[in-house]
Structures are given as structure tokens and as C-alpha cells.
Amino acid sequence: QWKVGDKCSAIWSEDGCIYPATIASIDFKRETCVVVYTGYGNREEQNLSDLLSPICE
């Protein structure tokens, strides 16, 4: 189960590419979260089910 502060990978809606991110907040009722893309600072809402394991850098 994901928690705030977890590192993950998420698909950015603008280009469909996968980027490393950190979970900033979680809404368990809606099963969504807000991620912050590492190195970019962009925030975006994602479905918890769409999150991927962190990418090894």
C-alpha cells in the first residue's frame, strides 16, 4: 500500500512518458493521490492504481 512520501513512478499526462515522482498526498476515498515529479516540481493527480514502482536511476 502506498503512503505519503513514497517514491514511485508515474505517467505524466502531457506526454505519456514515465517519470520518477514522490507521493505528496493521498485521498483513500477516491483512490487518488497527488504526485510531485522529481526534478521538475510539477504536481499532478493520479489514480493510486496507476502508480508504478520507482525507477532505478
Rank of each mutant, 00 (worst) to 15 (best):
S13T: 08
Q1H: 11
A24Q: 10
W2I: 14
R43Q: 14
S25V: 10
V4I: 06
I23F: 03
S53G: 11
V34A: 02
Q1D: 13
L51D: 01
G39R: 10
W12H: 04
D15V: 05
E14A: 13
I11H: 01
Y19M: 05
S9H: 12
T38Q: 05
E45C: 08
C17V: 05
V4R: 00
C56K: 10
P54E: 06
N42S: 12
A24V: 15
K3W: 13
V34E: 07
D50K: 06
T38S: 09
W2P: 14
E44M: 09
A10M: 07
F28W: 15
E44L: 06
C33L: 06
Y37S: 00
I23P: 03
G5V: 03
S9A: 13
W2C: 14
W12K: 01
G41K: 07
T22I: 14
I26Q: 01
C33F: 09
C33D: 00
G5H: 02
K29T: 12
G39W: 14
E31H: 11
S25A: 08
L51A: 04
S53D: 14
G39Y: 14
V4L: 00
I55A: 10
F28P: 11
Q1A: 10
E45G: 04
L48K: 01
G39I: 11
V35L: 06
W12L: 04
I55W: 12
Q1G: 13
G5P: 06
C8T: 00
P20Q: 12
E45N: 03
K7H: 10
Y19G: 02
L51P: 04
T32R: 08
E14R: 15
S25Q: 06
I11S: 02
V35Y: 06
R43C: 13
T38I: 12
E14I: 15
S25R: 06
F28C: 02
A21G: 05
A10L: 07
A24T: 09
E14W: 14
Q46L: 10
G41C: 07
W12D: 01
K7G: 10
Y40Q: 06
P54M: 10
P20L: 12
E44Q: 07
W12P: 00
T32Q: 02
I55T: 09
R43E: 11
N47C: 10
E44F: 08
N42Y: 14
L51G: 03
S13A: 08
S49E: 09
F28N: 08
D6A: 00
G5S: 04
R43W: 13
K29C: 06
G16A: 05
W12Y: 10
E57Y: 13
V34G: 00
Y19S: 03
S13F: 05
R30N: 12
G41M: 10
V36Y: 04
E14K: 15
A10Y: 06
G5F: 08
D27W: 12
R43I: 08
K29F: 12
R30G: 07
I55C: 13
A21Y: 07
I55E: 11
A21I: 12
T32W: 09
T22E: 09
C8Y: 00
L52R: 07
A24W: 13
